[in-house]
Design a binder for these strands. Structure first.
Lengths: 172, 172
DNA sequence: GTCTATAGTGCGATAGAC
DNA sequence: GTCTATCGCACTATAGAC
Protein backbone atom coordinates (compact mmCIF):
# COMPACT_ATOMS: atom_id res chain seq x y z
CA UNK A 1 0.00 0.00 0.00
CA UNK A 2 2.83 2.45 0.81
CA UNK A 3 4.13 3.62 -2.55
CA UNK A 4 7.73 4.49 -3.35
CA UNK A 5 8.35 7.80 -5.11
CA UNK A 6 8.76 6.03 -8.45
CA UNK A 7 5.56 4.04 -7.95
CA UNK A 8 3.73 7.23 -7.09
CA UNK A 9 4.88 8.82 -10.36
CA UNK A 10 3.66 5.80 -12.32
CA UNK A 11 0.25 5.81 -10.63
CA UNK A 12 -0.20 9.55 -11.11
CA UNK A 13 0.65 9.40 -14.81
CA UNK A 14 -1.51 6.32 -15.30
CA UNK A 15 -4.49 7.92 -13.59
CA UNK A 16 -4.37 10.92 -15.91
CA UNK A 17 -4.09 8.73 -19.00
CA UNK A 18 -6.84 6.37 -17.87
CA UNK A 19 -9.11 9.39 -17.50
CA UNK A 20 -8.30 10.65 -20.99
CA UNK A 21 -8.26 7.39 -22.97
CA UNK A 22 -9.88 4.80 -20.75
CA UNK A 23 -8.08 1.88 -19.12
CA UNK A 24 -8.16 -0.29 -22.22
CA UNK A 25 -7.08 2.62 -24.38
CA UNK A 26 -3.97 3.31 -22.33
CA UNK A 27 -0.78 1.37 -23.10
CA UNK A 28 2.35 0.97 -21.03
CA UNK A 29 4.19 2.81 -23.76
CA UNK A 30 1.94 5.83 -23.19
CA UNK A 31 2.60 5.72 -19.46
CA UNK A 32 6.35 5.39 -20.05
CA UNK A 33 6.33 8.28 -22.53
CA UNK A 34 4.40 10.46 -20.08
CA UNK A 35 7.14 9.82 -17.52
CA UNK A 36 9.99 10.15 -20.02
CA UNK A 37 11.27 6.63 -19.35
CA UNK A 38 11.09 3.27 -21.11
CA UNK A 39 8.49 0.55 -20.67
CA UNK A 40 11.02 -1.63 -18.86
CA UNK A 41 11.44 1.03 -16.20
CA UNK A 42 7.69 1.01 -15.62
CA UNK A 43 7.67 -2.77 -15.41
CA UNK A 44 10.31 -2.53 -12.72
CA UNK A 45 7.74 -0.78 -10.52
CA UNK A 46 4.71 -2.91 -11.37
CA UNK A 47 4.92 -6.35 -12.85
CA UNK A 48 1.83 -6.01 -15.05
CA UNK A 49 -0.59 -3.47 -16.41
CA UNK A 50 -3.32 -4.93 -14.22
CA UNK A 51 -1.22 -4.12 -11.17
CA UNK A 52 -1.03 -0.49 -12.25
CA UNK A 53 -4.79 -0.34 -12.77
CA UNK A 54 -5.29 -1.86 -9.34
CA UNK A 55 -2.86 0.57 -7.71
CA UNK A 56 -4.49 3.57 -9.37
CA UNK A 57 -7.98 2.44 -8.39
CA UNK A 58 -6.86 1.68 -4.83
CA UNK A 59 -5.33 5.14 -4.50
CA UNK A 60 -8.65 6.70 -5.45
CA UNK A 61 -10.58 4.46 -3.10
CA UNK A 62 -8.16 5.38 -0.32
CA UNK A 63 -8.90 9.06 -0.88
CA UNK A 64 -12.62 8.45 -0.64
CA UNK A 65 -12.08 6.31 2.42
CA UNK A 66 -10.18 9.10 4.16
CA UNK A 67 -13.03 11.49 3.46
CA UNK A 68 -15.68 9.08 4.70
CA UNK A 69 -13.82 8.03 7.83
CA UNK A 70 -12.82 11.52 8.89
CA UNK A 71 -16.36 12.86 8.54
CA UNK A 72 -18.51 12.90 11.67
CA UNK A 73 -21.62 14.59 10.30
CA UNK A 74 -23.62 14.36 7.12
CA UNK A 75 -22.67 17.88 6.11
CA UNK A 76 -18.99 17.17 6.57
CA UNK A 77 -19.28 14.05 4.44
CA UNK A 78 -21.10 15.77 1.60
CA UNK A 79 -18.57 18.62 1.59
CA UNK A 80 -15.70 16.14 1.54
CA UNK A 81 -17.21 14.14 -1.31
CA UNK A 82 -17.81 17.25 -3.38
CA UNK A 83 -14.28 18.55 -2.73
CA UNK A 84 -12.79 15.22 -3.74
CA UNK A 85 -14.81 15.04 -6.94
CA UNK A 86 -13.97 18.62 -7.93
CA UNK A 87 -10.28 18.10 -7.20
CA UNK A 88 -10.24 15.06 -9.51
CA UNK A 89 -12.61 16.41 -12.17
CA UNK A 90 -9.96 16.11 -14.86
CA UNK A 91 -8.34 12.91 -13.71
CA UNK A 92 -9.72 10.39 -11.29
CA UNK A 93 -13.41 10.94 -11.96
CA UNK A 94 -13.58 9.28 -15.30
CA UNK A 95 -11.37 6.39 -14.31
CA UNK A 96 -13.77 5.32 -11.58
CA UNK A 97 -16.46 4.84 -14.22
CA UNK A 98 -14.35 2.51 -16.31
CA UNK A 99 -16.01 -0.92 -16.61
CA UNK A 100 -12.78 -2.67 -15.66
CA UNK A 101 -12.36 -0.63 -12.48
CA UNK A 102 -16.02 -0.85 -11.53
CA UNK A 103 -16.00 -4.60 -11.90
CA UNK A 104 -12.96 -4.92 -9.64
CA UNK A 105 -14.62 -2.76 -7.00
CA UNK A 106 -18.07 -4.30 -7.01
CA UNK A 107 -17.07 -7.16 -4.71
CA UNK A 108 -14.13 -5.49 -3.01
CA UNK A 109 -14.41 -5.62 0.75
CA UNK A 110 -12.97 -2.16 1.45
CA UNK A 111 -15.14 -0.57 -1.19
CA UNK A 112 -18.25 -2.07 0.36
CA UNK A 113 -17.19 -0.96 3.81
CA UNK A 114 -16.70 2.60 2.65
CA UNK A 115 -20.07 2.61 0.92
CA UNK A 116 -21.72 1.17 4.01
CA UNK A 117 -20.25 3.83 6.26
CA UNK A 118 -21.31 6.44 3.74
CA UNK A 119 -24.89 5.27 3.75
CA UNK A 120 -24.96 5.14 7.54
CA UNK A 121 -23.74 8.72 7.80
CA UNK A 122 -26.06 10.01 5.09
CA UNK A 123 -29.25 8.19 5.90
CA UNK A 124 -28.89 6.83 9.41
CA UNK A 125 -30.93 3.74 10.13
CA UNK A 126 -32.70 3.67 6.79
CA UNK A 127 -31.78 0.30 5.25
CA UNK A 128 -34.53 0.25 2.64
CA UNK A 129 -33.92 -0.32 -1.05
CA UNK A 130 -34.82 3.30 -1.56
CA UNK A 131 -31.91 4.31 0.65
CA UNK A 132 -29.52 2.30 -1.51
CA UNK A 133 -30.77 3.95 -4.65
CA UNK A 134 -30.39 7.31 -2.97
CA UNK A 135 -26.75 6.72 -2.04
CA UNK A 136 -26.01 5.31 -5.48
CA UNK A 137 -27.63 8.31 -7.11
CA UNK A 138 -25.80 10.78 -4.90
CA UNK A 139 -22.43 9.22 -5.63
CA UNK A 140 -23.19 9.05 -9.35
CA UNK A 141 -24.53 12.59 -9.41
CA UNK A 142 -21.50 14.11 -7.73
CA UNK A 143 -18.82 12.10 -9.51
CA UNK A 144 -20.58 12.25 -12.86
CA UNK A 145 -21.60 15.89 -12.86
CA UNK A 146 -18.04 17.19 -12.45
CA UNK A 147 -17.09 15.67 -15.81
CA UNK A 148 -20.11 16.65 -17.86
CA UNK A 149 -19.29 18.76 -20.93
CA UNK A 150 -21.80 21.33 -19.70
CA UNK A 151 -19.73 22.27 -16.66
CA UNK A 152 -16.28 21.80 -18.12
CA UNK A 153 -15.60 25.54 -18.25
CA UNK A 154 -16.90 26.37 -14.78
CA UNK A 155 -14.29 27.38 -12.20
CA UNK A 156 -13.75 24.91 -9.40
CA UNK A 157 -15.25 27.09 -6.71
CA UNK A 158 -18.49 27.73 -8.61
CA UNK A 159 -18.88 24.05 -9.38
CA UNK A 160 -18.18 23.16 -5.75
CA UNK A 161 -20.82 25.52 -4.41
CA UNK A 162 -23.54 24.44 -6.82
CA UNK A 163 -22.84 20.75 -6.35
CA UNK A 164 -22.96 21.02 -2.60
CA UNK A 165 -26.31 22.75 -2.67
CA UNK A 166 -27.77 20.13 -4.99
CA UNK A 167 -26.29 17.23 -3.05
CA UNK A 168 -27.99 18.50 0.07
CA UNK A 169 -31.28 18.77 -1.75
CA UNK A 170 -30.97 15.19 -2.98
CA UNK A 171 -30.31 13.73 0.43
CA UNK A 172 -32.57 15.86 2.62
CA UNK B 1 -27.95 6.94 -40.41
CA UNK B 2 -30.39 4.22 -41.52
CA UNK B 3 -28.72 0.95 -40.59
CA UNK B 4 -28.91 -2.28 -42.55
CA UNK B 5 -29.79 -5.43 -40.62
CA UNK B 6 -26.13 -6.49 -40.59
CA UNK B 7 -25.00 -3.08 -39.39
CA UNK B 8 -27.60 -3.18 -36.65
CA UNK B 9 -26.25 -6.53 -35.44
CA UNK B 10 -22.71 -5.12 -35.36
CA UNK B 11 -23.76 -2.02 -33.42
CA UNK B 12 -25.79 -4.03 -30.92
CA UNK B 13 -22.96 -6.46 -30.21
CA UNK B 14 -20.43 -3.63 -30.03
CA UNK B 15 -22.56 -1.65 -27.58
CA UNK B 16 -22.76 -4.60 -25.19
CA UNK B 17 -19.03 -5.24 -25.39
CA UNK B 18 -18.16 -1.55 -24.98
CA UNK B 19 -20.24 -1.52 -21.81
CA UNK B 20 -18.46 -4.58 -20.42
CA UNK B 21 -14.87 -3.89 -21.43
CA UNK B 22 -14.75 -0.25 -22.41
CA UNK B 23 -14.21 1.02 -25.94
CA UNK B 24 -10.43 0.61 -25.82
CA UNK B 25 -10.79 -2.83 -24.26
CA UNK B 26 -12.99 -4.13 -27.05
CA UNK B 27 -11.37 -5.56 -30.18
CA UNK B 28 -12.86 -6.24 -33.55
CA UNK B 29 -12.14 -9.90 -32.95
CA UNK B 30 -14.38 -9.79 -29.86
CA UNK B 31 -17.18 -8.18 -31.85
CA UNK B 32 -16.79 -10.73 -34.65
CA UNK B 33 -16.79 -13.62 -32.15
CA UNK B 34 -19.93 -12.26 -30.49
CA UNK B 35 -21.64 -12.33 -33.88
CA UNK B 36 -20.14 -15.68 -34.90
CA UNK B 37 -18.44 -14.24 -37.98
CA UNK B 38 -14.89 -13.21 -38.93
CA UNK B 39 -13.28 -9.81 -38.60
CA UNK B 40 -13.42 -9.32 -42.36
CA UNK B 41 -17.20 -9.66 -42.29
CA UNK B 42 -17.39 -6.91 -39.69
CA UNK B 43 -15.09 -4.71 -41.77
CA UNK B 44 -17.46 -5.10 -44.67
CA UNK B 45 -20.09 -3.23 -42.63
CA UNK B 46 -17.85 -0.57 -41.15
CA UNK B 47 -14.51 0.40 -42.57
CA UNK B 48 -12.84 1.07 -39.21
CA UNK B 49 -13.29 0.54 -35.50
CA UNK B 50 -13.81 4.28 -35.06
CA UNK B 51 -16.80 4.07 -37.37
CA UNK B 52 -18.35 1.39 -35.18
CA UNK B 53 -17.78 3.48 -32.05
CA UNK B 54 -19.36 6.45 -33.77
CA UNK B 55 -22.35 4.42 -34.96
CA UNK B 56 -22.93 2.96 -31.48
CA UNK B 57 -22.68 6.36 -29.82
CA UNK B 58 -24.96 7.94 -32.42
CA UNK B 59 -27.57 5.25 -31.88
CA UNK B 60 -27.63 6.04 -28.17
CA UNK B 61 -27.80 9.76 -28.79
CA UNK B 62 -30.69 9.17 -31.20
CA UNK B 63 -32.60 7.33 -28.47
CA UNK B 64 -32.11 10.22 -26.06
CA UNK B 65 -33.08 12.65 -28.77
CA UNK B 66 -36.34 10.81 -29.40
CA UNK B 67 -37.16 11.00 -25.69
CA UNK B 68 -36.33 14.69 -25.45
CA UNK B 69 -38.17 15.72 -28.60
CA UNK B 70 -41.32 13.75 -27.91
CA UNK B 71 -41.66 15.11 -24.38
CA UNK B 72 -43.90 18.13 -23.91
CA UNK B 73 -43.73 18.50 -20.14
CA UNK B 74 -41.03 18.25 -17.54
CA UNK B 75 -42.61 15.17 -16.00
CA UNK B 76 -42.77 13.41 -19.35
CA UNK B 77 -39.11 14.17 -19.98
CA UNK B 78 -37.95 12.91 -16.60
CA UNK B 79 -39.96 9.72 -16.99
CA UNK B 80 -38.54 9.17 -20.47
CA UNK B 81 -34.98 9.74 -19.30
CA UNK B 82 -35.37 7.32 -16.41
CA UNK B 83 -36.98 4.68 -18.64
CA UNK B 84 -34.16 4.99 -21.17
CA UNK B 85 -31.47 4.70 -18.51
CA UNK B 86 -33.10 1.69 -16.86
CA UNK B 87 -33.61 -0.04 -20.21
CA UNK B 88 -29.90 0.35 -20.96
CA UNK B 89 -28.58 -0.25 -17.46
CA UNK B 90 -26.53 -3.23 -18.60
CA UNK B 91 -25.44 -1.94 -21.96
CA UNK B 92 -25.56 1.63 -23.17
CA UNK B 93 -25.14 3.36 -19.84
CA UNK B 94 -21.51 2.63 -19.30
CA UNK B 95 -20.53 3.26 -22.88
CA UNK B 96 -21.72 6.86 -22.70
CA UNK B 97 -19.23 7.47 -19.91
CA UNK B 98 -16.29 6.27 -21.93
CA UNK B 99 -13.72 9.05 -22.40
CA UNK B 100 -13.53 8.39 -26.13
CA UNK B 101 -17.29 8.69 -26.58
CA UNK B 102 -17.60 11.70 -24.29
CA UNK B 103 -14.88 13.54 -26.16
CA UNK B 104 -16.61 12.93 -29.48
CA UNK B 105 -19.90 14.24 -28.08
CA UNK B 106 -18.63 17.31 -26.27
CA UNK B 107 -18.60 19.46 -29.40
CA UNK B 108 -21.18 17.53 -31.39
CA UNK B 109 -23.93 19.79 -32.69
CA UNK B 110 -26.79 17.34 -32.23
CA UNK B 111 -25.67 16.48 -28.73
CA UNK B 112 -25.64 20.14 -27.75
CA UNK B 113 -29.06 20.67 -29.30
CA UNK B 114 -30.52 17.79 -27.32
CA UNK B 115 -28.96 19.06 -24.10
CA UNK B 116 -30.25 22.55 -24.80
CA UNK B 117 -33.78 21.36 -25.35
CA UNK B 118 -33.48 19.28 -22.20
CA UNK B 119 -32.49 22.25 -20.12
CA UNK B 120 -35.26 24.37 -21.58
CA UNK B 121 -37.87 21.77 -20.70
CA UNK B 122 -36.48 21.13 -17.23
CA UNK B 123 -35.68 24.63 -16.09
CA UNK B 124 -37.51 26.97 -18.44
CA UNK B 125 -35.90 30.38 -18.77
CA UNK B 126 -33.19 29.80 -16.20
CA UNK B 127 -29.90 30.22 -18.08
CA UNK B 128 -27.69 30.66 -15.02
CA UNK B 129 -24.58 28.65 -14.39
CA UNK B 130 -26.46 26.94 -11.59
CA UNK B 131 -29.00 25.68 -14.09
CA UNK B 132 -26.25 24.08 -16.16
CA UNK B 133 -24.85 22.33 -13.14
CA UNK B 134 -28.33 21.13 -12.30
CA UNK B 135 -28.92 19.59 -15.72
CA UNK B 136 -25.44 18.04 -15.70
CA UNK B 137 -26.04 16.60 -12.27
CA UNK B 138 -29.45 15.24 -13.19
CA UNK B 139 -28.12 13.51 -16.30
CA UNK B 140 -25.15 12.13 -14.39
CA UNK B 141 -27.31 11.02 -11.48
CA UNK B 142 -29.78 9.12 -13.61
CA UNK B 143 -27.33 7.54 -16.04
CA UNK B 144 -24.76 6.82 -13.34
CA UNK B 145 -27.04 5.49 -10.65
CA UNK B 146 -28.46 2.70 -12.81
CA UNK B 147 -25.01 1.12 -13.05
CA UNK B 148 -23.86 1.47 -9.47
CA UNK B 149 -22.96 -1.85 -7.80
CA UNK B 150 -25.38 -0.96 -5.01
CA UNK B 151 -28.43 -1.21 -7.23
CA UNK B 152 -27.28 -3.96 -9.55
CA UNK B 153 -29.66 -6.50 -8.02
CA UNK B 154 -32.73 -4.28 -7.92
CA UNK B 155 -35.53 -5.15 -10.34
CA UNK B 156 -36.08 -2.65 -13.14
CA UNK B 157 -39.43 -1.46 -11.86
CA UNK B 158 -38.17 -0.71 -8.34
CA UNK B 159 -35.18 1.14 -9.71
CA UNK B 160 -37.38 3.09 -12.08
CA UNK B 161 -39.74 4.22 -9.34
CA UNK B 162 -37.01 5.32 -6.94
CA UNK B 163 -35.02 7.11 -9.61
CA UNK B 164 -38.03 9.03 -10.81
CA UNK B 165 -38.85 10.23 -7.31
CA UNK B 166 -35.30 11.38 -6.70
CA UNK B 167 -34.98 13.03 -10.10
CA UNK B 168 -38.06 15.09 -9.33
CA UNK B 169 -36.60 16.09 -6.02
CA UNK B 170 -33.39 17.24 -7.69
CA UNK B 171 -35.09 19.41 -10.26
CA UNK B 172 -37.99 20.88 -8.26
C1' DG C 1 16.12 2.65 -11.19
C1' DT C 2 16.84 2.86 -15.82
C1' DC C 3 18.50 1.18 -20.09
C1' DT C 4 18.69 -1.81 -24.87
C1' DA C 5 17.01 -5.59 -27.06
C1' DT C 6 13.87 -9.02 -28.00
C1' DA C 7 10.23 -12.68 -27.68
C1' DG C 8 5.60 -13.76 -28.58
C1' DT C 9 0.95 -12.32 -29.23
C1' DG C 10 -2.97 -9.85 -30.79
C1' DC C 11 -4.22 -5.73 -33.00
C1' DG C 12 -6.50 -2.93 -37.00
C1' DA C 13 -6.91 -3.27 -41.60
C1' DT C 14 -6.76 -5.12 -46.61
C1' DA C 15 -6.90 -8.31 -50.82
C1' DG C 16 -9.29 -11.35 -53.31
C1' DA C 17 -12.16 -15.77 -53.77
C1' DC C 18 -16.87 -17.50 -53.29
C1' DG D 1 -22.21 -10.92 -46.95
C1' DT D 2 -18.89 -13.99 -45.54
C1' DC D 3 -14.72 -16.36 -46.02
C1' DT D 4 -9.22 -17.44 -45.86
C1' DA D 5 -4.97 -15.45 -45.67
C1' DT D 6 -1.92 -12.06 -44.77
C1' DC D 7 0.53 -7.52 -43.78
C1' DG D 8 2.71 -4.37 -40.70
C1' DC D 9 2.50 -2.76 -36.39
C1' DA D 10 1.87 -2.01 -31.35
C1' DC D 11 1.17 -4.45 -27.50
C1' DT D 12 2.48 -6.89 -22.87
C1' DA D 13 6.15 -8.80 -20.80
C1' DT D 14 11.04 -10.53 -19.93
C1' DA D 15 16.33 -10.86 -19.87
C1' DG D 16 20.37 -8.93 -18.72
C1' DA D 17 23.76 -4.85 -18.73
C1' DC D 18 24.83 -0.51 -16.28
Amino acid sequence: MALTAAQHRVVTAATQLFARHGVGGTSLQMIADELGVTKAAVYHQYKSKDDIVLAAASAELARLRTVVESATTRDELLAGMVDLAVAGRRTAGRMLNDPVVVASFAHDKKFREVMHKMRALLLGDDHSRGAQVRVAMLVAAISGAVMHPFVIDLPDETLRRELLALANRLID
